[in-house]
Design a protein around this nucleic acid. Structure first.
Length: 500
RNA sequence: GGCGUCAUCGUCUAGCCUGGUUAGGACACGGGGCCUUCAAUCCCGUAACAUGGGUUCAAAUCCCAUUGACGCCA
């Protein structure tokens, strides 16, 4: 255990992520996790996961699982924890109540904390009075110096009570790695409730105990915790515990510059998994929200991020969550990552989130082919099923006029499709691929004046016949994926459509 | 309401510590090339130091104030 008086060492730091399992794994928490992880890896330290589930009413198992799955998906593995099923799981505060109780008793015994028997009504009335007089609402300290016999008597009578800590009437200053010196006037706070009972510690108390017991050297967390920091330091000092180094990260904001929340759209990591984003892209995107490498590199994998990460270079102001940039990153990774890896991600994705099509007759190979030609034009996997439905359904719904190339007539379009039919029929089933298609079509065009310098006259109707879309991949690529038989069928159908 | 934090293109940011830059990059946006559409890609472009006051030969950079935004508690 750390010597309370020894200043924390910068080498081999120990950091933690301490989420409450009261909602889906939030993007902001994910970024906090990433920065903690990067800092630990960069400095040869340890990253610890601690689930803060002392609030029994709001904590749920599925949320804890979601956090764990999210961290694993992002590749942010934690380094230690209690044994669970052969592996080490996260720490859970709900399993550490004995520890908190021990320190609570110590504080009580030392006279640094005390039982408070004021009723909620009393507290509320007091608060209203102070506010109406324009004063900061804080506890009066009424129960601070109750005679011990009276306390014992009330306790024996089971009179409702909470435990408060005696707040020193001084100012307190702490150093923040990102913000520099931060100062608070403790006198404005009043005696803080640190536990509802010996077995019900409150957030600020259990955090302090755990950070100490887990020998946390650096507390890296969101800016929203800045006001909690002085409270935690007071508890540390009452117990004679060392002070970790603090670093408060800027918030992730919605487009209106307020804290990124549900009303801004999807804020949970799962929702992006559902949309079909890649973990590499999410990590990269998250890293650049509030941090920037010394050079101008933007595309970085986890390993590179670890190498370049510098906690002190983290931005102070909040960062707006920019969907377009996320999309850009994802599109980049879709094309940069090894094909096999993307195919595997896609296979997993389809398994986990079945698309609104019957894929029973579609094999993996077919899916991979689609993916290959569509990669440059999608931002995530779910888009594939929205914009490329023609690969998954045989019934194309498009107006016949769409088949007509700009400035052309219906008859010419019919002629073009008939020509297309003839060209395709020259290719055997086994030679039916985009290379052969292209060479056959180009040869045909070279020999037919009406298409020279105006390939669109021939290729546009073909592309629409195959896709039914105004915008799509090229006709040869689509035809190759669909196969000769299906391609011919669609072209004939297009001709029929034009006649009708 | 109290306390705290923050402020460079629309967005993410470099530059600030150690004053002198055509204030740089990326996303987005606009134009163009390529071209069978859409993407991808290449070229070009629009666009910012919150405001006011100091200090200084010189301020995005140092100091002060104001404003605004956000966070926490209530």
């Amino acid at each position: 255990m750390l010597d309370p008086k020894t200043p924390q060492q910068l080498f081999a730091p120990r950091v933690r992520l301490a989420p409450s399992p009261t909602g889906w794994f939030h993007f902001g928490t994910a970024r906090t996790a990433l920065f903690n992880y990067l800092f630990a890896r960069k400095n040869g330290g340890k990253f610890i996961l601690r689930i803060e589930d002392t609030d029994k009413k709001r904590s749920q198992k599925i949320y804890e699982e979601d956090i764990i799955n999210g961290l694993k998906w992002l590749g942010l593995d934690w380094d230690e924890g209690p044994e669970r099923e052969g592996d080490f799981g996260p720490y859970r505060q709900s399993e550490r109540l004995d520890l908190y109780e021990k320190y609570l008793k110590q504080l009580l015994a030392d006279g640094k904390a005390y039982y408070c028997f004021c009723t909620p009504e009393e507290i509320e009335a007091q608060k209203q009075d102070l506010i109406s007089r324009g004063l900061p609402p804080k506890y009066s300290g009424k129960c601070r110096d109750l005679p011990p016999q009276l306390v014992a008597q009330y306790l024996a009578e089971k009179k409702p009570a909470v435990i408060r800590i005696k707040m020193p009437k001084t100012t307190l200053q702490f150093d923040d790695l990102i913000r520099g010196k931060v100062e608070f006037n403790l006198d404005l706070l009043g005696d803080l409730v640190i536990a509802k009972s010996l077995r019900e510690p409150l957030y600020n108390f259990s955090v302090v105990i755990d950070d100490y017991l887990m020998q946390i050297t650096h507390v890296i967390r969101g800016e929203d915790h800045i006001p909690n920091t002085p409270k935690q330091i007071v508890i540390q000092e009452a117990l004679g515990l060392p002070r970790p180094i603090y670093a408060h990260l800027p918030m992730i904001l919605g487009p209106d510059r307020s804290k990124f929340s549900k009303r801004h759209g999807a804020t949970a990591l799962v929702e992006y998994q559902k949309l079909g984003y890649l973990p590499e892209a999410v990590v990269n995107f998250l890293a650049l929200l509030g941090w920037h490498p010394a050079d101008n590199e933007e595309i970085m994998d986890l390993e590179t991020l670890v190498k370049k990460f510098e906690l002190t270079k983290v931005q102070k102001g909040g960062a707006i969550f920019n969907f377009q940039k996320l999309n850009w990153f994802n599109n980049q990774y879709l094309r940069i990552l090894p094909k096999e890896r993307v195919f595997n991600y896609f296979a997993d994705y389809v398994k986990k989130y079945p698309p609104p099509f019957d894929l029973s007759e579609i094999n993996q190979e077919y899916l991979n082919k689609i993916l290959e030609i569509e990669l440059p034009r999608i931002n995530n996997f779910s888009e594939l099923f929205q914009t490329c439905d023609f690969f998954f359904t045989k019934e194309l719904k498009y107006p016949p006029e769409l088949l007509i190339w700009k400035g052309e007539s219906v008859t010419n379009t019919q002629q073009a499709l008939t020509d297309v039919l003839n060209i395709i029929n020259q290719i055997s089933d086994e030679d039916f691929n985009r290379i052969n298609l292209q060479s056959k079509f180009y040869t045909f065009i070279d020999n037919h004046l009406e298409y020279q310098g105006n390939r669109g006259k021939l290729l546009w109707p073909l592309r629409v016949a195959l896709s039914g879309k105004q915008a799509s991949a090229g006709p040869f690529e689509i035809a190759e994926v669909l196969g000769k038989k299906e391609s011919l069928r669609r072209i004939k159908e297009a001709i029929n459509k034009l006649e009708a």
